[in-house]
């Protein structure tokens, strides 16, 4: 699992370099997200533009990442590819997370 992160205007951007977040790596992803989001800024954007596929275990790990950040913080998702977008919409998780078509659009959104 490889996550990279940058801090831009008080927003933490975490980029997933792998092309899948699936059952084989869900636990690692959750732990890496914990390390990345521990104590950082209130708003975090997860850049999923390189991720082709998320299964229900990967979806669960993204939900767990939000939960472990704690109340009062935000995890927005950017750059969802078509199949990843579909998994979020089918499970209605698009009502829990704010989804942005691209990282630029997420950064342009000032509602934080």
């Amino acid at each position: 699992m490889s996550l990279t992160s940058t801090l831009t205007n008080g927003v933490k951007i975490i980029t997933v370099a792998d092309n899948r977040i699936d059952a084989a790596m869900a636990i690692q992803f959750k732990e890496d997200m914990r390390a990345e989001t521990n104590g950082g800024p209130k708003r975090v954007i997860l850049d999923l533009s390189r991720v082709d596929f998320v299964d229900s275990s990967g979806l669960g790990a993204i939900v767990a990442s939000l939960k472990q950040m704690g109340e009062g913080r935000r995890l927005d998702l950017a750059g969802l590819t078509p199949t990843v977008d579909k998994v979020f919409r089918l499970t209605r998780m698009d009502t829990v997370f704010k989804l942005f078509p691209s990282l630029d659009k997420a950064l342009a959104s000032l509602s934080h």
Binding site: S57, L59, G60, L66, K67, T91, M93
Partner: peptide
Amino acid sequence: KADLSVPLADLPEGGF
């Protein structure tokens, strides 16, 4: 379908 109208801490992480 999972129930998502719950507090943050109770959001489902599986069962999808």
